[in-house]
């Protein structure tokens, strides 16, 4: 629906469009969390602790004008137009608001991009073999969209990589475990759970002084019902000042099984591809936290927890 020019025009001209992750928003105990929940409570999403996902239209002061969680574009568009009518009927005083300082954010649920950090965009796609080539898989008559996630690196981690690049060697466990556990998932149909440490049977990635990265990955759940097996190749390189210039990695593998929020997996082992690429992270959509970062320390210290 949001790909349609008519909808884009409407959203861009008549609204301030915002996208947010409900997992954090419904939990955070700070001004933003209280505000969001006070808006949601005016609609049907008011169960304590329950999901509040959906599409909302409201004033800056927090008055709900419309809500919809229907996938039917016509119904959502109707909600937008109905909300605009309600907006037009509001007195001028309700079309603006004095927004206070947001105060201290709930560190448990407010994620902040690390100062001087690096974002690597991770795209993944279900694949299938066709005429001796790998193609985007057609599942149930449709080609599922590419999934996107973001690998975050701290400044000191990039510096350590730069030092390693001079001699070559194994990539640090912290980075390889982060990549394996949080980013080599089957995220094609929803939110995958991160792999557990004990499930990563092998993830050995090697960086040569010339910048070439290679390695293999084997992940298997305790009961063997979910897993991933693949190989990685690519380049990590730096400019003469030690700035990361390339972080281009490509993995191909097979995944199997499904999780609580990734139902509908293809039977057996199926091809899955991931592409890691450096991004300047100047746009808001490139600065959202990694999908598996619900427990922040667990993400940053993937080799420990």
């Amino acid at each position: 629906m949001f790909s349609k020019p008519k909808v884009q025009k409407l959203l861009g001209e008549e609204f301030i469009p915002v996208a947010a992750n409900d997992w954090y928003q419904r939990r955070r105990q700070d001004a933003e969390g209280h505000f969001f929940r006070s808006v949601a409570a005016q609609g049907p999403r008011r169960t304590e602790g329950g999901t509040r996902q959906g599409h909302y239209v409201f004033t800056a002061g927090g008055k709900l004008l419309g809500y919809n969680n229907n996938r039917d574009p016509k119904k959502r568009l109707a909600m937008m137009r109905d909300a605009l009518k309600k907006w037009e009927a509001l007195p001028d005083s309700e079309k603006t608001a004095t927004i206070p300082d947001r105060g201290k954010q709930d560190a448990k649920y407010a994620r902040e991009f690390p100062k001087g950090g690096t974002v690597v965009k991770v795209h993944s796609r279900a694949l299938e073999g066709k005429d001796g080539q790998l193609k985007a898989a057609v599942i149930g008559g449709n080609t599922p969209l590419a999934a996107v996630d973001f690998l975050w690196l701290k400044k000191e981690e990039v510096a350590a990589l730069h030092a390693l690049s001079k001699s070559g060697g194994y990539l640090p466990d912290r980075l390889t475990e982060r990549m394996a556990r949080f980013h080599l998932n089957d995220s094609i149909r929803g939110e995958p759970r991160p792999w557990k440490r004990s499930e990563v049977k092998n993830c050995t990635l090697t960086l040569t002084p010339s910048g070439e990265v290679t390695g293999t990955i084997l992940i298997n759940s305790r009961d063997g019902k979910m897993g991933y097996e693949g190989a990685l190749t690519g380049t990590i390189s730096f400019d003469k000042n030690g700035n990361l210039q390339r972080f281009d990695l490509f993995t191909l593998g097979s995944h199997w099984g499904e999780g609580q929020f990734t139902r509908g997996a293809r039977p057996g082992k199926s091809p899955l591809g991931h592409v890691f690429s450096l991004t300047s992270a100047t746009k808001p959509e490139d600065q959202i936290p990694p999908q598996g970062m619900h427990w922040e320390q667990g993400y940053w210290e993937a080799e420990k927890h």
């Binding site: 959203l11 008549e14 609204f15 301030i16 469009p17 915002v18 996208a19 947010a20 992750n21 409900d22 997992w23 928003q25 505000f35 969001f36 808006v39 949601a40 999901t51 509040r52 996902q53 959906g54 599409h55 909302y56 239209v57 409201f58 004033t59 800056a60 002061g61 004008l65 937008m80 909300a83 605009l84 907006w87 001028d92 079309k95 603006t96 608001a97 004095t98 927004i99 599922p144 969209l145 999934a147 996107v148 996630d149 973001f150 995220s187 094609i188 149909r189 929803g190 939110e191 929020f261 808001p284 959509e285 959202i288 936290p289 990694p290 999908q291």
Partner: peptide, 24 residues
Amino acid sequence: RREAAKAKKPIYLWEMDGHPLGCV
């Protein structure tokens, strides 16, 4: 919210379990 108050426009919030701009 600040931007909406200044521009006198309503907010359209797309709220999902899993960030709408990530995942799928």
